[in-house]
Amino acid sequence: MKKRIASIILVIILALIPCLPALAEGNSTVTITMATDKDIDIILEPILWNIGDVEPNTEYVTDPYAKWCTITNEGNCVVDIRIKGEDAVWVDNPSAYTWQLSSDNTTAKRKYALLYHIAQDDADSYTPITTIDTQMKHVKKGYEINGKPLTLIGHDDKAYFGLKLLTPNPDFAVDGGGYFYASGGGRKMETTITISAVAA
């Protein structure tokens, strides 16, 4: 009797052998891969640009023009640098008075432009900063680096850039000049430029 039972069990096991690969396939595991010893860490210095009073339709450039801001890679991975701008708003009432950020380097009434220049690129090369997050790219015609993304390779690598502001056309034009609308002696406008880092 015992032999018969053992035979039945053996037959069952033998019958199930073809199913084993399927069982193994069924145990396909979800894998999560991440390098926890790597980090993204950049430092910008400075983070403020105090321009003061501005006139319509005028160009303002950071001082120094090319090495105004330092980006330092404090992390341990290679990062590409990206940039995005925003509309400028009146601090006291952001919805009441704004300057739209230009998508190129043109200005108009209530439309201003921001541009960046990467140090050691062509001297007069400025690239518009738009509301779309885009890679910062070198402009150095005739060199291999032209059109390549601004990349910080490894810890303590640095890059430098400067900014240019083109103020809007006047809200109210008068003989050969113009004015911005203001209330009570001027409006304080503010904007933000986001500098992003992403693993290359």
Binding site: L44, L48, D53, F180, G186, R187, M189, E190
Partner: peptide, 23 residues
């Protein structure tokens, strides 16, 4: 109308001791 509009980016923050000099 005023001749100028201020585009003073975070002027207050620059006059007062800023808690964040760099991110």
């Amino acid at each position: 109308q005023s001749k100028y509009v201020w585009l003073i980016v975070a002027l207050v923050a620059s006059l007062l001791p800023s808690p964040v000099l760099a991110w």
